[in-house]
Amino acid sequence: MELTVSKLNRFVFFKLPSAFICGVRVKSIDKDKCVVTVKHRWINQNPFNSMYFAVQAMAAELTTGAMVIAKIQQSGKKISMLVANNKSNFSKKATGRITFECKDGHLIEDAIQKTIATGEGQTFWMKSIGTNEEGVQVSEMDFEWSIRIK
């Protein structure tokens, strides 16, 4: 079963309701790239008139995690996934619609193959870049994913 934008947004609604309420939405996904947007609104603001960092983190993590879910489904194996670490850098106030994009889908397949072959857990880092409507980078987030065959 292919993971589509509508299926992912339904997943966000039922399994990540705080992200859904804050406006996090998947816009596109393919084997190498995922795009998620979120608009600065009252519900997701901080006291400094910009988007709260945790809302940005939810959107950024979804760009990476959605591709991990898709690749695990494609493998046909039972594999667990978990964020082991994350790093963030905020370079500008996040106002308006922020678009997060991850282009690291190519990193996942190798780790899945290794965990299937060896039975040992694997880790890999994926980067998501957040840009505003003018195309200016507002944040950069790195997530270390840990996967393991069940």
Rank of each mutant, 00 (worst) to 15 (best):
M1C: 07
E2R: 07
E2C: 05
L3V: 13
T4H: 01
V5K: 09
L8S: 11
L8R: 04
N9W: 01
N9T: 00
R10M: 13
R10L: 14
F11D: 10
V12F: 01
K15I: 09
K15W: 12
L16R: 09
P17C: 10
F20V: 09
F20H: 12
C22H: 06
G23W: 12
S28P: 10
I29F: 06
D30I: 10
D30P: 06
K31M: 14
T37H: 08
V38Y: 02
K39F: 08
K39Y: 09
H40G: 12
I43E: 01
N44S: 01
Q45R: 15
Q45M: 15
N46H: 03
P47T: 06
F48V: 05
Y52Q: 02
F53P: 08
A54D: 13
A54T: 12
V55Y: 08
V55C: 14
Q56K: 12
Q56P: 09
Q56Y: 09
A57R: 04
A59Q: 05
A60R: 01
L62E: 06
I69H: 13
I69F: 15
A70M: 14
K71P: 05
I72Y: 08
Q73D: 14
Q74M: 13
S75M: 04
G76D: 07
I79K: 04
S80H: 13
S80I: 13
L82S: 11
V83S: 07
N85S: 11
N85E: 15
K87P: 02
N89M: 06
S91W: 03
S91I: 04
R97G: 04
F100R: 07
E101S: 04
K103E: 05
D104M: 03
H106S: 15
H106R: 13
I108C: 01
E109P: 02
E109Q: 08
D110W: 06
A111E: 13
Q113L: 11
K114A: 02
T115Q: 03
A117I: 05
A117N: 09
T118E: 02
G119A: 00
E120A: 08
G121E: 15
G121Y: 12
T123A: 06
T123V: 09
F124V: 08
F124M: 11
W125S: 07
M126K: 07
K127Y: 08
I129P: 04
G130P: 03
G130W: 01
T131N: 05
N132L: 00
E134N: 13
G135L: 00
G135Y: 01
V136A: 14
V136N: 14
Q137D: 03
D142R: 10
D142C: 12
W145M: 12
S146T: 11
S146N: 11
S146P: 03
S146W: 11
R148A: 15
K150N: 15
K150L: 15
